[in-house]
Write a protein that binds this DNA or RNA. Structure first.
Lengths: 181, 181
DNA sequence: GTGGTGTGTCAACAATCGTTGACTTGCCAT
DNA sequence: ATGGCAAGTCAACGATTGTTGACACACCAC
């Protein structure tokens, strides 16, 4: 379906994003990326100035919340449930959540991720909710559910895509939005 | 204060636990550990059969819940709030949470962590609550709050140790315990 | 004394890492 | 045709990784 006459630079960016965001900066080598892209191993330094340069470039592809399209909190809950449910269903898709968890403790990557997360996700969410405290709690439960389901594979979390899973997510999201300030 | 006539093996185990659990398996080299312990770099392979062997050994030091000492759910909430609040206050203490987050995506360490977490934390918690679903939700919000506070440093999360922080934790923990099964 | 065992030291191994410089190739403007 | 520029290839670099084998030393049983 998708035509793929990507430039070398685009291919490196795509595979770099996928591998970095899923497996973590330290666990991915430059040769992993260039190998997946089918190009020479020297081209990462060529195009992006090095491994870290490519990683920084992938961060600019971080999803942002479309604030304008969300009228009220009830719509926000629906939207978050939908986004989150879809993201969790397929384990091979890099998301903001996998990016953060995979690089949470990396000495080089973590500061960059934290900065990008704050500017491109947390700030819009806080603006949407009119509260940094509520935005923080929403992010907390979102990440927590992802860790429980994808990282720890807890049996108590229902399978993503099912109504029972959506009920769990929606319940805890609603509770987060009713947190004490 | 603390006398420190540790054996070499004990010293390697202690520094290995601290570094592995805080920084992640991939981000810690054998020489980091032996250097911190002040011993020769070859002794990790000597005593533990290799880097991975030492890591496995540290997993046996994972905290477990003292089920016998907790009479009801209200006491559980208090205990979880207390444990969690204390753990969050000092960033340099390795905990179950830092261990999991630091090794969430490591191809070698993650399976071992997942297995140990399930046997030594999740199972006791589920038994205590009489529900895998509730135990999973409790773990989810616990980890989520830790990510929000320690990894992302969200301003909306209050400082650990304050009453406002304990209120946030207690509120979301209570909500997790009222999740739909 | 003698042999053995446990403990630690040292140098070096092969493998992998990110990166670099020299080189070839192809294309376009002149 | 020719000069120049961008794109890609290739081999190699120094650094770091985990691991190993040979060796030195201390201690204890016999």
């Amino acid at each position: 379906m998708d035509a793929k006459p990507l430039t070398t630079r685009e291919a490196l960016l795509a595979h770099g994003k996928r591998l970095f965001w899923l497996n973590g900066y330290a666990n991915v080598s430059v040769r992993d990326i260039t190998g997946a892209a089918g190009v020479d191993g020297a081209l990462v330094s060529r195009y992006f100035g090095g491994k870290l340069g490519l990683f920084k470039e992938t961060l600019s592809q971080m999803d942002t919340l479309d604030i304008a399209g969300i009228p009220d909190r009830e719509a926000l809950i629906s939207e978050l449930v939908r986004i989150f449910d879809e993201a969790e269903r397929s384990p091979d898709v890099p998301t903001v959540i996998t990016l953060t968890l995979a690089n949470a403790r990396d000495p080089e990557a973590a500061p960059l991720v934290k900065e990008a997360m704050d500017a491109r996700w947390q700030k819009p969410l806080a603006e949407l909710l009119g509260s940094e405290a509520l935005a923080a709690m929403v992010t907390a439960v979102t990440f927590g559910m992802s860790v429980a389901e994808k990282t720890l594979c807890l049996e108590g979390i229902h399978r993503p895509g099912t109504p029972a899973y959506r009920a769990q997510i929606e319940h805890i999201l609603r509770a987060a939005l009713e947190s004490p300030e």
